[in-house]
Design a binder for these strands. Sequence first.
DNA 1: AAGCCAATGACAACCGATTGCCAAAAATTG
DNA 2: CAATTTTTGGCAATCGGTTGTCATTGGCTT
Lengths: 347, 347
Amino acid sequence: MSDSPADATPRRPATIRDVAALCGVTASTVSRALTTPGRVNYRTRARIEAAASELNYIPNAQAKALSSGRTRTVAVLVADITNPFYFDIIRGTQLQLKAAGYTQLLVDTEESEEVEANTLEQMRRTADGVILTASQLSDAALVAASGRMPLVTINRDMAGVPSVILDTPTATNQALDHLISLGHSRIAYLGGPESSSSNMRRWAALSTAGRERDVDVVRLGPFAPRTYSGAAAADALVHSGATAGIAFNDLMAIGMLQRLHERGVQVPEDLSIVGCDDIFGADFCSPPLTTVTAPIEQAGRVAVTMLLSQISPGVGLLQRNQEVLPTYLTVRGSTGTAPAGSPRLDR
Amino acid sequence: MSDSPADATPRRPATIRDVAALCGVTASTVSRALTTPGRVNYRTRARIEAAASELNYIPNAQAKALSSGRTRTVAVLVADITNPFYFDIIRGTQLQLKAAGYTQLLVDTEESEEVEANTLEQMRRTADGVILTASQLSDAALVAASGRMPLVTINRDMAGVPSVILDTPTATNQALDHLISLGHSRIAYLGGPESSSSNMRRWAALSTAGRERDVDVVRLGPFAPRTYSGAAAADALVHSGATAGIAFNDLMAIGMLQRLHERGVQVPEDLSIVGCDDIFGADFCSPPLTTVTAPIEQAGRVAVTMLLSQISPGVGLLQRNQEVLPTYLTVRGSTGTAPAGSPRLDR
DNA sequence: AAGCCAATGACAACCGATTGCCAAAAATTG
DNA sequence: CAATTTTTGGCAATCGGTTGTCATTGGCTT
């Protein structure tokens, strides 16, 4: 039992030459048999395939990459692996990449432009393409990078650079209407990082919509898109005198919920809160969060599809170079009718 | 501006021979200058370094891997990328791998033994080592795999295979004592997958502890370790007549909380719930979950450290081949005193 | 000044595949 | 049946590095 053929795994994995030797052909023939089906007589191919599986031959990916120039690997750069938002992205990319036989390289850029640029340069050789989330790169650098290698961004709208955009501004406006219909007339936007283009787009949409609908929409922040900055955001919101707040993302919104609970401010009785993204947890926090539901995982999947069509243009899957994914408002327990007579919330 | 030296990125990245040519030396000298510092005169090395940075030379990872046999890549296999538990693992591995200059390959095995085995065989060439979470492999297969390449498991206690174990049984017993001290005397364990070794160890510890302390500990399930199976678990718990439940993990516990809320069962007044892991969300669900806090991210980090010390044995970092990480009980709002007189919970 | 040794850089083989080109064998054609 | 075309497999170069071996150089000892 110590050496039954099934278990026997020689210490050195079989190479293409081992297979060739076993069949009495050369390595090039084996290579052709395995990669260019029609190029080799079917009888010899059968022999080769048998030998390959007998030796448990697995082509060396490195060698393959070196000679072919393709690594069958895609790098996914996330800004902050701590953020559940990116988990959904990663889930989507992983799913789609695996289906296409690609391997996923996961890199956390820690929101650093430098790390991002270096990684990108590194990956130029290591990966066949890159998916960039929340890029910190300048417009010029991004365009340049995109010219150098297949690349798709998520949530970065840049002409000439293929991208997947989660259309949160539209749904944020829906959220605004939702709040207005509940009687709110002074509403705050708890902003995220200034460098975030979705943050900017969203605020632009909200402030315009506010003017059109004749309600006060004020902007607070910027706040870090993390749970812990929810405290600052909550305090700012209370102090602002607004009766409802739309947060940059769910993380912040959940942090706000916690802080407001501590301070004894009732949600939604005293204050309504809307989040954005609908991440894991948004449905079971207390109260459950009214939020803008974004198809995050789908964004990851679509990004991969777009990227792969760049990598192998023959396969005309998805040739557009921008994909806008719709989002929608999910109403849960954190929004309610505006308090009568604008109660003094800030003690 | 279209061709300033700083921006100029030739279409073909510079190779080691380009650098060599620019310095009037051979490729081997460049290689040595860059990798074996003392091997080359410091003056020529300086010249080479200057040339390298001028040409923006980045060694080709594939070629490097091919000739050196090291890929500087580690594969992390997770059973289910959907589960927040693994996010924390991934976060830990990513952190530590990056610090060591390694790249992380992320693979979702979808809880399939076959996918796991195939990936493992594949990675034998592609990665320098593997971190295995929730492995589905048989003991024999695991030992064999571990003999073939550097490998560290997380939460799989197998003699001869280096592992990181989150010692949840100890803290689960603490949870039991906590419940007993609150007056509970009939307590259920909502089991996870039978194939999970931490599930088995935990149940073994709980049932022994229950006997020792002379309280009823019953086992329900198995249930899938997901939020959605919390409904079944909650119903089973209510029907069992126990006044407290310890769930296999937080996901299940959070699902139970939701279901119990729907059914109008008050937590913790009618029923106490304890989770396990302390994942993202455990602190802000409703009520906040009493749970066994496990240093999940640390487990990822430690696994990487152990793996790297296997890969380069010279660096005597962490030579033990099993690391048990302590966990502790975090009491939040989902546990309380036992209801008086065993109220009829099941309608 | 002869002899020796360490330092330094070049040469060439090698890692494991792919692929352009060529020659032998087989099949087709007139 | 000879001439031509197609099929099939081998040879060797190549991808971009690493590394063992060797020859040269210069410094040092005695």
